[in-house]
Nucleic acid binder design. Structure first.
Lengths: 365, 365
DNA sequence: TTGAAAGCGTTACCAA
DNA sequence: TTGGTAACGCTTTCAA
């Protein structure tokens, strides 16, 4: 009924003990508690030496007044903002949404806020990071979510002179949290090799337009390692873009090839599902005619019965935030740190032993 | 190699024209441009009357110095923060991730920042919203993403005295963006009725623990409308929780029922896919033995060949931000506004005519 | 342990 | 159109 706008700044005749903007200020608390503003500041932040009784009195006064310190004023005076900038190339993709969730949850535990920067993937959208100094003096630290940055972008962030933690990418000067992508690729490959597959294809990322090239490259390196160790020829590689559609496009090429590979590793579950879709449309049986492995353990991996190398994305997010909180508490000089979380092979129905009887109805459908 | 921490505050001998913290301040720009700080402030913000030559000079000086106004100082002086708080019960679920994406993208176009508040769903996590006044003076406005709020939570937000826009829920005093959930339910139901289905079940939300009760209730209302209009008995309703697992749980109950319904409407695609999974495990053919409709048009709806009522979530997010930007520009008094975006039936393979020959192989698999 | 007062770096009002 | 200057509301140093 009542529109908020109905009651603008026109607060009632200014209650006792309220600053001019209708909100109590530190002076009001000081007056009520019978101490100086300096003491209020100290007591409220829990730092410094304040006697127990004084602190109690201040806390009570603040509570009575419903006092909350002005973030702007506090930042201006202290130089700290209590805000962490999170930079991501996407928000709605599985990996990023979950990573963000983890980061936000952990930071909140320490009273830190998250300021979101979806920088996108195109040059123009990315200029956000460069053109304006959006982050300057606005954040105490930065988390970069799996996003390759141009040298100038790195320079801009460096220029902020705040700690930076990367998640899923490796940028030399910064702290890093991630999985062992080489091991992830190796795990997937070894699984297929153990099932007897020899002609295996890899759907990776796009080396040119990708926003996190190293991820796909590292996973491929692991695949090659395993192939080499098993004396199997290097898998052919197709370009994907991490999405369902990209996986499907790669799948089209792959399943038309002669000879058709007997197994496919995709660098993400979304691409793997794309491949599965094409296989189904082609009338191929999975896993009799084709085995498929993904990476992620996306929630829809289960519904597609997809074997995958699971990565703990929420935990990665928390770990990144953990690291950041720690670095922030340490003060200035903290040597570069790296946190690597383990992956785990989740075997489902999309992978199976190589069947040499392509047409036989091995599986009742 | 070089840890960021290696070069702390110890900047080189302070270059000419730099404030004490090593970053140029408005005074440095004023000096370089030969004007007052007041003029610099006006010129840089593009507001007020500043002569063209003066403005040019100031802009040049600012650019030369790489000057960026301190957000804290600006907020303190102006009372505006340029930040919008976004409140959500989840970050990683499809709907929320996409809505957030839309909101962020649109706000960025107007230079507004997004401060994220994942308030969760449990009482304790939700207390975030209440206990501390996290938002006070930190944001110029708030967007609430599909989240039912307790009266006290509404009061806290009201107390902020900033514009609030809700997305996907309807909280009386606030602006609202969403779809017509009643129509969405009706559309799904009419589709099934037109295919000859009469025994239809609905998997909705949990009326008690749900974080957006009205959504499921409204969709059900639309279903009932359509049922009534067609002279068909009201569908039985099962409780879901919007997730895959919840849909699967409801599906178990539903597909064990005697008689088994011939069609299911789920209030979200994730739940619909959960039902499909159970159907598959039960050996039921879709759509010969069971038709399933969802709501959302989740990216995995396609891979599961799911018929669904699509809602434009990114667009909803943009619309919410649009509305907010407009309200913010209007100044104080803006009567409550509502924006409703259309949904669209997307027919895929999970729905079909009612088949009275349960065992016949109607469909080659 | 506490208080006084000097910033922090802008914006906005009022004069010029 | 421009400049001077008083806020803005804290934190922090220095003394007491």
């Amino acid at each position: 009924m009542v529109s908020r706008a109905d009651a603008p700044d026109a607060a009632p005749p200014v209650p006792v003990g309220r600053g001019r903007r209708g909100v109590p200020g530190i002076h009001d608390v000081a007056r009520l508690a019978g101490v100086s503003t300096a003491t209020v500041s100290r007591a409220l932040r829990g730092v410094d030496r304040v006697s127990a009784p004084t602190r109690t009195r201040v806390l009570q006064a603040a509570a009575d007044l419903g006092y909350v310190a002005s973030p702007s004023a506090a930042s201006l005076a202290s130089g700290r903002t209590g805000v962490v900038g999170v930079i991501a190339p996407f928000l709605s993709r599985w990996f990023f949404a979950h990573a963000l969730d983890g980061v936000e949850g952990r930071l909140r535990e320490d009273g830190l806020h998250v300021l979101l920067f979806n920088v996108g993937t195109t040059r123009s959208s990315r200029s956000v990071l460069l053109d304006q100094q959006l982050l300057r003096r606005r954040v105490d630290a930065v988390v970069v979510l799996s996003c390759d940055l141009e040298p100038e972008e790195v320079a801009v962030l460096q220029d902020l002179h705040v700690p930076v933690v990367t998640l899923g990418v490796d940028v030399t000067p910064w702290h890093r949290v991630g999985i062992d992508d080489v091991a992830a690729g190796r795990t997937a490959m070894q699984h297929l090799l153990s099932l007897g597959h020899r002609d295996i294809a890899y759907v990776g990322g796009d080396r040119v337009h990708d926003v996190h090239v190293a991820t796909a490259v590292d996973r491929r390196a692991g695949i090659l390692q395993a192939a080499e160790a098993a004396g199997v020829p290097a898998p052919r590689e197709l370009v994907g873009d991490w999405t369902l559609a990209g996986g499907a496009a790669a799948g089209e090429l792959l399943l038309d090839a002669v000879p058709r590979p007997t197994a496919v590793i995709a660098a993400s579950d979304e691409m793997a599902v794309g491949v599965l879709g094409v296989a189904r449309r082609r009338g191929l049986r999975v896993p009799e005619d084709l085995s498929v492995v993904g990476v992620d353990d996306h929630e829809f991996a289960g519904t597609h019965d997809l074997t995958t190398v699971a990565q703990p994305v929420d935990a990665l997010g928390r770990a990144a935030a953990d690291l950041l909180v720690d670095v922030l508490q340490q003060g200035v000089a903290v040597p570069r740190r790296t946190v690597v979380l383990p992956t785990r092979l989740v075997v489902r129905g999309s992978t199976g032993s190589l069947s040499r009887t392509p047409a036989s109805p091995v599986r009742a459908s």
